[in-house]
Design a protein around this nucleic acid. Structure first.
Length: 206
DNA sequence: GCCGGGATACTCT
DNA sequence: GAGTATCCCGGCA
């Protein structure tokens, strides 16, 4: 497995969002290695994308990280409760990002189970197993990612994304979720997921 | 299984 | 002071 480098992230979010499917998100925390395979992403295309926090060049303390170099983490809190993990894409000055919407646990299963449900993986019910990481807020809780990870360099050794041996899968594209305010942009098919994977947050397009 | 509502805190007007 | 790139639980079928 090879850690993705900065040139990988220096592409349009749509390209990166598709390329990230099947890759492995790794978080080293408390001497534990938590790994999960990325199965669902969303592209946010910056200036021209009404759904993006950086739409029309909006630049504030929160969005500042997206205006910087590619390959850094953009983590923000939504609804006061849930963290959302994104990778910054494109060169400095072009504020694009890719939201990781769902992952499939690979290792560190007990850590994830404890973070989400306060018990070992072996005691989870069937719906709890799928519910570990099948949503943007859920995967952050399971992988111990929070707003203190905002601005972390993903080309480092603590929180990063590794290439995986190519498995065969079909990529489905669909409309994004939870952005009904974004007028025509809400209909753009900029959400991508692996066909048939049980950890995908929502199979149907709304 | 499908609604409906509440939680909760940070960001921007 | 309003809105938010969400999740969970309870009620009803």
């Amino acid at each position: 497995m090879e850690v993705l480098d900065r040139t990988f992230f220096n592409q349009d979010s749509i390209v990166v969002a598709k390329a990230l499917l099947g890759k492995t998100l790794v978080h080293e925390v408390n001497g534990q290695t938590i790994m999960a395979s990325i199965v669902e992403t969303e592209a946010y295309m910056g200036i021209e994308d009404k759904a993006a926090h950086s739409y029309n060049g909006r630049r504030t303390a929160r969005t500042e990280i997206m205006y910087g170099a590619p390959g850094f983490a953009y983590v923000f809190l939504i609804y006061g409760i849930h963290a959302c993990f994104n990778t910054v894409t494109r060169e400095a000055g072009v504020p694009q990002a890719v939201l990781i919407r769902a992952v499939e646990p690979v290792s560190g299963l007990d850590s994830m189970a404890h973070a989400r449900f306060g018990k070992p993986y072996s005691e989870l019910t069937g719906s709890q197993i799928v519910g570990l990481t099948n949503g943007p807020g859920k995967l952050c809780q399971a992988m111990s990612i929070d707003t203190s990870d905002n601005g972390t360099d993903l080309c480092g050794k603590r929180l990063y994304i590794a290439d995986s041996d190519d498995a065969e899968f079909n990529i489905i594209s669909a409309t994004r979720i939870g952005i009904d305010y974004a007028e025509e942009a809400k209909d753009y098919p900029w959400r991508f997921f692996i066909e048939g994977n049980p950890y995908v947050s929502r199979i149907r397009t709304p």
